[in-house]
Design a protein around this nucleic acid. Structure first.
Length: 560
RNA sequence: AGCCCUAUGGUGUAAUGGUAACACUCCGGAUUUUGAUUCCGUCAUUCCAGGUUCGAGUCCUGGUAGGGCUACCA
């Protein structure tokens, strides 16, 4: 697929570790996992993790490697099954398949509970009745050590009893927690007797009201990985300081495997908003139409905008895997999108700012003919379409200049230009309104120039797009200049709501006759020549009505 | 402030201790029935200072800069 695929693929530092583990015999296969919390929709940052985790499994499929999809649903207050469904759909759409390996952390709640009891029995966990505030103060800070809880040395039997009663629902939320007994002086704050279980009387999307105690991420996650025999647990950099704790739980619990956590940097994109908190706010407060609003960099938003899965995948491949905290330029994403669309999107003609053209030597007013126009000049297989051509046309206003400079190749008095796919026409005159605006131009077409070079003596250096006014139809396109673009980078923090501007454009297309635009399937992307790529909107399009398009990306360096 | 992590052109990534490379962007040129595409080219890089070594982007030490950690979130 990619040009460099025949070259020897470079290994990132994680793939190198995996290769070494395979070579040394530490592992005979590779099992990775993508573990989202179902508390929102997936975005392009998740795409990087998905492509990476599933990609590694795919690269080693001949030795039975696989990637699990696991929902990390240990906090019932934030999680919903709507999110579970959307996440599954998005992973599939991106082109990955978890096969039979679909898991829920919530299905391991019994095991977590047993492990907790195991730790209590070993004297490595205790029930703490301090308030959240007290726990926080006693934890100390980065320079001063914490102080032990007064409940820290509770006898094992008492801990067991209290923990059982926590589970039985005898206590209110926040009354007590189960903590690991590690120490209060570590320079790593995560190691200062971290909370393992909290009381939450909440309904869980999967387990309902069966539980009122829920495990914390730090406790649950290593056990989930071990239970599934994950070999390499790949996560983002902010969990680096959690790794000692991850290992501590693995070492002290009766688990069937010893997964290894490795961290890599998350994806940051310039001029955009990706944090789930902000996305949630935009959705909840109605600033966007939903999680799939084309302005958002959610997977579903990108789908609605016309980004192709293959392009997103190659983008993820391009940005690579490192531990360096980088900010990737949006231009790299857009370059991948254009690269993909350039090969696949069918071309269409459209006029944004129409100027009337009358072909004065046209046989008669009612005569029209069909010209055959390629759907994608670079790709014969895309075929051709027939477009109606008549006496009266619309062209782009900017394609005519009353007094054109030398470097202008399009129409002007006495100049010739090709109607894309059709005849060469020569401008013989024009009309102006009282205000001095050009309202109409007159041209003569040169017979027998379709598909042929300009005759001797005619200078024709450009082809312009046009629409037969007799068959023209209106469409609406929504322009989003760069995804969720922010004029001022500082606005990304705090003022991020101000970057939601949308521009809408009316265009006239040649769609009425060929009808391909009107019956465009949601997600179909077209290139309006010299304007950009546009995706038929899956939400707003009503058959028979004016079609609505979302701009996918602008053409590079084209007429704006 | 303590601990952990990171540092290669404008941006993102490569380089068993041995000629610093690829992509994007910018700019220039050629081709073009899209001023797109395609093709070619230009500019530009190892944070700083020491050390080890025949040889350091790579190893060591010390700075500097950036990120992370002080949730009963994940």
């Amino acid at each position: 697929m990619s040009k460099e695929s025949h070259k020897k693929e470079k290994l990132d530092f994680i793939r190198e570790i995996i290769a070494a583990d395979l070579k040394s015999g530490k592992h005979s296969t590779v099992i990775t996992r993508f573990p989202p919390e179902p508390n929102g929709y997936l975005h392009i940052g998740h795409a990087k993790s998905i492509c990476f985790n599933f990609g590694i499994a795919r690269e080693h499929q001949e030795i039975g490697a696989r990637c699990h999809l696991r929902f990390d649903d240990t906090n019932p207050e934030k999680e919903e099954s709507e999110y579970v469904d959307s996440i599954k759909a998005d992973v599939r759409w991106l082109g990955f398949d978890w096969g039979d390996n679909l898991y829920f952390a919530s299905n391991y709640f019994d095991f977590f509970y047993d492990c907790a009891r195991h730790l209590i029995n070993k004297g490595l966990a205790y029930v703490d009745e301090q308030s959240p505030e007290e726990i926080r103060t006693h934890r100390g800070n980065v320079t001063t050590p914490g102080t032990p809880s007064p409940f820290r040395d509770r006898p094992v039997e008492e801990n067991l009893d209290l923990f059982a009663r926590m589970k039985a629902g005898e206590f209110d939320d926040g009354a007590m927690v189960l903590r690991a007994k590690i120490g209060m002086t570590s320079s790593n704050m995560n190691m200062r007797d971290p909370v393992m279980y909290r009381i939450m009387h909440a309904t869980h999307h999967n387990t309902g009201d069966q539980w009122c105690v829920y495990p914390m991420y730090d406790f649950a996650h290593p056990l989930e990985d071990a239970l599934e025999h994950i070999t390499h647990s790949l996560c983002t950099l902010e969990f680096e300081n959690h790794r000692p704790l991850y290992d501590w739980f693995i070492d002290n619990c009766p688990v069937p495997a010893k997964p290894r956590q490795i961290e890599f940097s998350r994806l940051n994109l310039s001029y955009t908003v990706m944090s789930k908190r902000k996305l949630l706010q935009l959705v909840n407060e109605g600033h966007v139409s939903g999680w799939d609003d084309p302005r958002l960099l959610t997977i579903s938003g990108m789908r609605r905008r016309g980004y192709q899965p293959a392009a997103i995948r190659s983008f993820c491949h391009r940005v690579g895997i490192t531990k360096f905290n980088s900010v990737t330029d949006m231009a790299i994403l857009e370059a991948e999108i254009r690269n993909e669309l350039n090969q696949n999107a069918e071309r269409r003609m459209a006029v944004v700012n129409p100027l009337k053209v009358v072909i004065t030597n046209w046989p008669d007013d009612t005569h029209s003919e069909l010209v055959e126009v390629p759907n994608n000049p670079a790709n014969k297989e895309a075929g051709t379409r027939q477009v109606s051509l008549g006496k009266e046309l619309w062209i782009e206003h900017d394609d005519f200049m009353e007094d054109p400079p030398n470097k202008f190749f399009r129409l002007g008095p006495g100049r010739s230009v090709r109607l894309r796919g059709g005849y060469i026409i020569t401008c013989t005159g024009f009309e102006k309104s009282d205000t001095g605006e050009v309202t109409e131009i007159h041209c003569e077409f040169i017979p027998d120039t379709i598909g042929k070079d300009a005759p001797e003596g005619v200078k024709c250096r450009a082809a312009i797009h046009w629409v037969d006014s007799a068959t023209a139809m209106d469409a609406e396109v929504r322009l989003y200049d760069r995804l969720f673009s922010v004029e001022n980078p500082d606005a990304a923090e705090g003022g991020f709501l101000s970057c939601l501007n949308t521009d809408s454009l009316s265009v006239i297309t040649d769609a009425k006759l060929e009808a391909s635009l009107a019956r465009a399937n949601p997600g179909d992307v077209f290139q309006f020549e010299r304007v950009g790529y546009f995706c038929a909107d899956s939400v707003d399009h009503i058959p028979g009505e004016k079609p609505v398009f979302n701009r996918t990306v602008a053409l590079k360096d084209s007429w704006k």
